[in-house]
């Protein structure tokens, strides 16, 4: 049986390595977080989809190509997510969940675990001066750069 492993979460399927294995098949997942477009609150979302919050836990989430270890109440800076400020989103790519008594390891994702989050701010990162110079060739170039960022606040880590 062929099993696909070593795939990068952010890249397309073209860069997947194939090795002979016979464990579980790879799960496919989208690259963007689920946007809670129906404007229901965190609690309503939990009851509607029969989720329960996991108390005193941390999770490793994957957001736009980067991974973060988060707990409830954290504010993290990610690449720009094109969602309005104040909106509620659900991060569905959870790679690891740790509680006081157990650790859930995802291969690559932990099933039925999601993380609530809110968009706090849509700022730019700190300005970077890019200065290029070649000696004895009369070449100097100065430009600047500011990346687009998003601050998100982490809510409950929930499980089905």
């Amino acid at each position: 049986m062929n099993r696909i492993i070593g795939s990068n979460l952010m890249k397309s399927t073209s860069s997947i390595l194939v090795r002979n294995q016979s464990i579980a098949p790879i799960k496919s997942f989208s690259t963007t977080p689920i946007i809670n477009s129906s404007q229901v609150s965190e609690e309503d979302y939990n009851t509607k989809n029969s989720f329960k919050p996991i108390e005193e836990s941390f999770a490793v989430v994957h957001i736009s190509g980067k991974q973060f270890k988060v707990i409830k109440g954290d504010i993290i800076m990610t690449d720009r997510i094109n969602v309005d400020v104040g909106e509620h989103i659900v991060l569905d790519k959870v790679l690891l969940v740790g509680t006081k008594s157990q650790t859930m390891i995802g291969t690559p994702l932990v099933e039925n675990v999601k993380v609530h989050a809110y968009i706090e701010e849509q700022p730019k990162t700190e300005h970077v001066t890019i200065f290029k110079h070649k000696p004895r060739k009369n070449y100097k170039r100065t430009t600047g750069f500011q990346a687009l960022a998003t601050y998100i606040r982490i809510g409950d880590i929930i499980q089905k």
């Binding site: 492993i5 790879i26 490793v60 270890k69 790679l95 390891i105 291969t107």
Partner: peptide, 27 residues
């Protein structure tokens, strides 16, 4: 980890090694 398709990156693994010894042990 690669063989079982655990895709946690090195940044997080090192963070777990320092701050979450039990989770790291389970890994």
């Amino acid at each position: 980890l690669t063989a079982s398709d655990v895709q946690i990156n090195r940044k997080i693994l090192s963070e777990l090694a320092v701050s979450e010894p039990y989770s790291f042990k389970s890994l």
